[in-house]
Design a binder for these strands. Structure first.
Lengths: 298, 298
DNA sequence: CCCCGTGATGCCCTTCCCGTATCAATCCAT
DNA sequence: ATGGATTGATACGGGAAGGGCATCACGGGG
């Protein structure tokens, strides 16, 4: 295979049509330049230049190869520049995981921030529950996770990404739905409550349990579910009441009434960003820096 | 700038994710391969591979660069193949000059033959009078000319490309136009004849003069013109009669009647192909070979 | 705890490549 | 016509680059 040096040599000679001048342009002397061209021609087994002692002219093959040579050289330079951009986080790819619930609250803002911080980055989104996000993070399949706070492994770092409130989701016609004014935790005593799975949706499970324990209130946990969607579907069918993150109320389910609930903590649901301590994706670095900067301002 | 060797080294390592195996694939030992990667990384000032003693992994920058590296290598191979095709005349560009008149007779067949002989060649067509074609040929601006036979310089070769007849072009209502049957050369005696320029259209000028001299006939040369188009335009305006190549009769001018003329030589108008003896365009070589082969068959 | 696997490093030698000097061919001018 | 100038090719010497061998450093597994 020919070398890039041979290509630059050839392009210089083809443009100058003069070995000595081309050599000067390449900051070398004429003899090695002649040899570079010879090597290239031998390598290709094609004569690229017709040269006599008085004139240098491109052959048709040389003319064709000149175009190719220029393209290869340009692409090489572009590749060098592009890879440097990627390495400093000005371009590249970032894989972001998110939970279904977070999609309704924080994800939009996060994507906007990403596009602001790294306009030329390609964003790959993957929906997965928080637990899977952590696994994907350690296995380098994800650069950033947006999910519920949880045990972060030793290699992972996290930071809060925002909080939101809980709303009661009540079937149309339910006694609590008819009553005016906000609900209290005590109102859930004895109610059929659609509960989050202690494994798949551990964060919400523990959150609700702690709320009810603190208020010494005991709903009936009729079903354990992992997805907010499923819970709302059952509420809509009248199978019970539920507590869901505020943002999901935007979903406008049929036959569901959302009502505020008075809680000891007004916005008890947390979202957090998780990433590897040992971050090897510069795009992530740029994004995190941007986030802390803009957060600092507001 | 990095070298192509470094790119192939990097691609091999990136695909194997294992230096020793990659080295084996490249038919070299592991140490120099390690150094090639180091050189590439230093050159780019970017870390492409995360390597510990137990694992090799691409960094995001490395992933981005892998794509670029593969493309550059593929293009280099393609360029080598393409230039070889051009050099043996299987592809490339051929510049063909033609006279306006020849466009109506032989040019179509010539183009068809070119496409048959070298399907992948790009054909550049330039209309110019024969004299300009010869100049363009010696200056390498043209590979092949299709025009009237003429003095070919010492560097040029030519061969006949076909012959055709002459037709009388007569204004509608002209005495000769009304008369039934073919004309004879003698009929032109004393006629206002639109004549070809002795410089710009020397071939036709000399052809007609020799025909009239041989028949001892003397028309009146009212105008000297270089283009058949111009002559026909004047005939159409009733300014005289003319003798034009058969093929141009296809042009269907308004108010012109074409009639055959009895000549000593039935098809006195010759066309010829001209090219440089010292032909440096392989496409032309392939085309000429194809022409003599098919001509040989027919 | 030792051994195996793997990438990095040190060292040597070959090869490649540049620069200087020179040659060969051609054009131009006297 | 002949000599000088121009220009690409060639010869040769020295230094740098690059590959192979031996070895080191480090981490994982039996």
């Amino acid at each position: 295979m020919f070398t890039l040096t041979q290509l630059t040599s050839f392009v210089a000679v083809a443009e100058e049509l003069h070995f000595t001048r081309a050599a000067a342009r390449l900051k070398m002397t004429q003899p090695p330049l002649s040899r570079q061209i010879q090597l290239l021609e031998n390598e290709l087994r094609v004569q690229l230049l017709d040269r006599t002692n008085r004139s240098v002219r491109l052959t048709p093959a040389g003319r064709a190869f000149l175009t190719e040579a220029r393209r290869i050289l340009r692409q090489s330079e572009d590749a060098a520049l592009a890879v440097r951009q990627v390495s400093v986080g000005e371009a590249g790819t970032i894989a972001i995981g998110f939970t279904a619930a977070s999609a309704h609250s924080m994800l939009g803002a996060l994507l906007e921030a990403t596009r602001e911080a790294v306009p030329r980055a390609e964003i790959v989104l993957r929906e997965m529950v928080t637990r899977d996000q952590l696994e994907a993070l350690t296995e380098h399949r994800l650069d950033l996770g947006l999910g519920r706070p949880s045990m972060t492994g030793p290699d992972l770092t996290s930071r809060p990404a925002g909080r939101e409130g809980l709303l009661a989701a009540l079937p149309l016609g339910h006694a609590l739905a008819e009553r005016p004014g906000p609900l209290s935790v005590a109102d859930f005593d004895g109610q059929q409550l659609l509960m989050y799975s202690p494994t798949e949706a551990r964060y919400f499970n523990e959150l609700l349990i702690s709320i009810f324990n603190a208020a010494r209130v005991a709903p009936v946990f009729s079903q354990y579910l992992s997805q907010v969607h499923s819970i709302l579907a059952l509420v809509s069918s009248g199978l019970g009441v539920a507590l869901v993150p505020e943002a999901t109320a935007r979903l406008r389910y049929a036959d569901i009434v959302f009502k505020p609930v008075e809680l000891p903590t007004p916005e008890p649901v947390e979202l957090s960003l998780v990433w590897r301590k040992n971050n090897d994706n510069p795009v992530l670095g740029t994004l995190l820096e941007h986030l802390s900067r803009t957060r600092g301002e507001s």
